[in-house]
Design a protein around this nucleic acid. Sequence first.
DNA 1: ATCCAGGAACTGT
DNA 2: ACAGTTCATGGA
Length: 305
Amino acid sequence: MNWTDHESYIEIYPPKEFNFDECLIFLGRSNQEVLHQIKEGSVFKLLKMKGSLILCKIGYTINSIKVVFPISIPTIDARKKVGEYVWEWFDLDQDLGEYYQVASQDKVLRSLAHKYYGLRIMCIPDLFEALVWAIMGQQIHLTFAYTLKQRFVEQFGEFITFEGERFWLFPSFENIASLNVDDLRKLQFTTRKAEYILGIAKEMESGRLTKELLLQKQDVHQVRKSLMLIRGIGAWTADYVMMKCLHQASAFPIADVGLHNALKNLFGHKEKPTIDEIEEYATNWGGWQAYATFYLWRSLYDKKV
DNA sequence: ATCCAGGAACTGT
DNA sequence: ACAGTTCATGGA
């Protein structure tokens, strides 16, 4: 992480290939989002560091991301943790120069890379949140997935109020682990999704499932395998979490419907591509499949309005 | 109405 | 290994 501390605020220096406004467009794609709010070019987000709630206002100045604290100034340790969270959230460890080099040679990616230059995968640094969000999104429209997330967060998460508005935190696995299936069924979760989510919460509560343990695996294949051993996590969810939480640029949720629709639109086809055809398109995406996927998702968001 | 949605587990071959 | 079936609910 490249940053400086100024007590009342912190500054984070992203790599060259970075466009804050592009990232904000992705963050603003749903008006049902409850975990952050965008206002006047900044994004407000509530975080919890070392037990205390910290409201952050994240904006951009000439060449740095500036994080200010509208409610109260956190300790130096907490400020550093906030910086690390933001660094991960915007996927700033990634060397996008390489991706753009790959993209410039590829007829599918070239125009997208130019159009959305500086866009980074907007990550979900918290493993529990990433897994639960992925499971919520399985086999349903995104709008309904957001509805489920909103109910889940507002039922089981913490919040603070600032200037008459509520800012929410995603529920902790400790809280969710003590629930039963009916608690989630009441919010319109299917029995299966409820079981998956409770199972994962318990697995994390036991300490057997942590982000650190996953990142210690020898290679991405091992990470994927151990994720898929967990009930409720298939290939799609494993790849999704690897790209959105574990920063694996080569993760590739190839069965994703959004990816299929994006490719269909891009080529103006009537039918969605088959898996074989997608593999064909992706032959030269080596190592950057997650970014290819994310940029294709981003292209879907243009179509609306 | 009907088909589908940022799938996964289960069952049978 | 592979294909078909079931789960469940709201969106378009």
